[in-house]
Design a protein around this nucleic acid. Structure first.
Lengths: 345, 345
DNA sequence: GAATGGTATGCAACCGGTTGCATGTCAAGC
DNA sequence: GCTTGACATGCAACCGGTTGCATACCATTC
């Protein structure tokens, strides 16, 4: 059936020789050919050389799918993110890929687009053909995640579920540094422009802002920007300016960038009359003015997550792992001294 | 072996029942169970219901890998891009995913990092377990690509090889409009900030600039920014200003953004004393000032490419397809009237 | 009541590898 | 010269599905 359709319907010659053909051509058994590729140390050097030579001539490549069926090892992992287009993810994806590559693994990418149902569907499609999963900023509920974790090694990024290996980007230190920085510049009233309520990162950041502000006697109000994006950030500007604060910390860089655009539209100069701090450090110096931000090392998260997945796949670490990545403040040009009360608008 | 390691080494119960267990539990043959899932119309409605019910109770899910082995259809496709972190790609990836998803396909993502050898390696890993490939901005040489195309349906994005289905983002019309726009604003000398010499898009753009400039009697010089990035764009500013041109078209938005930063550092105001045009329209209004750019509809490219791949996979289109996506100019705030000669710096 | 035909199900081979165990070969040791 | 054992290779079962063909069953029809 398969053969027929191959040679019939399309002209694709599909001259992918099988192990049997190589075996016949080199006068050995299929087992020997198999071993020449997967366990050459079991064979004479001469045999290996001869088989490989003939295989090469025929253009033979071991069939991954067949191998996976008999060994149970497919050499694939899956990475599911909540939004490929959010600049936070590409560096993470890139780093994860790189790490997987070094281990000879192929990576499936899934994009849940912030939708739990979609994410569940993707997991279902992937789980049968991967040896492990990484879920970044998963929107799935805990129960589902736990269930998947019993089927396959699974690592979470920025999601804190007890008993499941996870890597968390701990932005609290960076956020605390940002508050300290603003306090030193003389700001007394600040705003936190918040992201998705279900987001672990948002909770982290919101709490860190509160805690640190309280410690230093600053007043902080919260203004939502949901879903977090350039546009919602821009729209938040009016409300923020009206509230009388002199500085804002945004849930992420995109929101911060939008906020700066909104401020510019209202003729509020940054950093002269207002200071802005972002989170993630994914835009570098490309904003205007260059954004002071909390660096979250998102690339490292991808790398570490795949690393943990690998060790879980081979031999399996016994205990759970809760890997924290820390953060620091990068001071650029979007923050400055608080405007003096009298001269302010 | 597999069973042992599953139940032994780790505690992962791996209670994934096989078709045989479902067959035994429901008192039918394996063939019947198989058909209940893949060809239910062959069976009595009652049988299908009964089998599915028991399968559901046992938690049975058909094993993709085994299915792929016997049918040759794995339900996977691969997408290889030259740089995930370049903002041109995420929207493309997202759109490609979406389209693949609708067809029930899983997508492998590969990141060549602009390296042909790496790209070749990735193709090799993927090709055995996918039904088709999409190569975006491939850096592979023609011969390799042709060889892969004989093995599997393959679609190229922004690479023009005769006989192979490809989708090309034709930026020529947009670039021509940009030149016209600059000419109308009174610019007579302009620069093209060029990208990778091996890039099809760069050749397109360079030629379009030349052709249109000649038609309108503008003078154009070329200044390289390689590899194309924010930084190389920024560095190009000095040379560009020194050359005396009053406007520049950059290979892509990132380079344009860098160029604007470089100009700002030299105290050259955009658009008052210098105009800048980007390419791709991937940054939206987020630059300062908002960038006039040639919109390349990169998301559409991903969508169309997967669409073509699908039709090639099912039944196969006979002739080759060369799908052109066109472009248009988006005028924002980075372009303005040419500074008058006398008053210029 | 036997021939006919349509249909639901089972049998068994197959997809392309891997691997436990059996076998054959050859050199060393007595 | 025969036993012993190490080692290279082959045999055949297995991974978990799919599918061509055979068969058994049932309802028509003459």
């Amino acid at each position: 059936m398969k053969r027929d359709s191959d040679s019939g319907g399309k002209e694709r010659p599909s001259v992918v020789p099988t192990i049997s053909q190589v075996a016949k051509a080199s006068g050995v058994s299929r087992a020997t050919v198999s071993r020449a590729f997967s366990r050459p140390e079991m064979l004479t050097e001469a045999t290996v050389r001869r088989v490989k030579e003939i295989a090469g001539k025929l253009g033979y490549v071991p069939n991954q799918v067949a191998r996976a069926l008999s060994t149970g090892r497919h050499g694939n992992v899956a990475l599911i993110v909540s939004d490929v287009a959010n600049p936070f993810f590409p560096p993470l994806i890139r780093a994860a890929q790189l790490r997987a590559d070094q281990a000879g693994l192929c990576v499936f990418l899934g994009n849940s687009d912030e939708d739990p149902a979609r994410e569940e569907l993707l997991v279902g499609r992937f789980i049968g053909q991967v040896e492990g999963l990484v879920l970044a900023s998963s929107r799935l509920d805990e129960e589902h995640i736990r269930r998947h974790a019993t089927r396959r090694p699974l690592v979470l990024i920025n999601r804190d579920i007890e008993g499941i290996t996870r890597v968390l980007i701990d932005t609290a230190p960076g956020v605390a540094a940002a508050i300290a920085h603003l306090a030193e510049l003389g700001h007394r009233h600040i705003a936190y422009v918040s992201g998705p309520t279900t987001s672990w990162s948002n909770q982290q950041r919101r709490n860190a802002v509160r805690r640190e502000a309280e410690k230093r006697g600053l007043k902080v109000i919260a203004v939502p920007a949901r879903p977090p994006s350039y546009d919602t950030g821009r729209l938040a500007a009016t409300q923020i300016v009206a509230s009388g604060v002199t500085a804002a910390i945004a849930f992420d860089d995109l929101v911060a960038q939008g906020l700066m655009a909104g401020l510019a539209a209202l003729d509020v100069e940054v950093p002269k009359s207002f200071s802005v701090v972002g989170c993630d450090d994914v835009l570098g110096e490309t904003t205007y003015p260059p954004l002071t931000t909390v660096s979250a090392r998102c690339a490292d998260a991808g790398d570490v997550a795949v690393g943990l997945l690998l060790s879980q796949m081979n031999g399996g670490v016994s205990g759970e792992i809760r890997h924290k990545l820390n953060s620091h403040l990068v001071i650029r040009a979007s923050t400055g001294p608080a405007p003096s009360r009298r001269r302010g608008r």
